[in-house]
């Protein structure tokens, strides 16, 4: 539980940290958007089957 003291951090180090955090944040946004899209597509496939069947029945 020896949490690091963060009082003596150089500006260069703070800049490095900001950059790393921003890069991670950007990557997470991209990956989460891709996954949400994939999940929606997978959900639509499951939901599409009965809807298609209903349409087919109506046509018949």
């Amino acid at each position: 539980q020896d949490m690091e003291s963060s009082s003596l951090v150089s500006s260069a180090e703070r800049q490095r940290r900001r950059t790393l955090l921003q890069e991670w944040s950007d990557w997470r946004k991209r990956v989460e958007a891709d996954l949400a899209s994939d999940r929606a597509a997978a959900g639509q496939q499951v939901a599409a089957a009965p809807a298609d069947d209903e349409e087919a029945e109506e046509v018949d």
Binding site: Q1, E4, W24
Partner: peptide, 10 residues
């Protein structure tokens, strides 16, 4: 996780 720095031990 992001900064790859150790922060503590238990």
């Amino acid at each position: 996780k992001i900064l790859e720095e150790e922060v503590g031990r238990v």
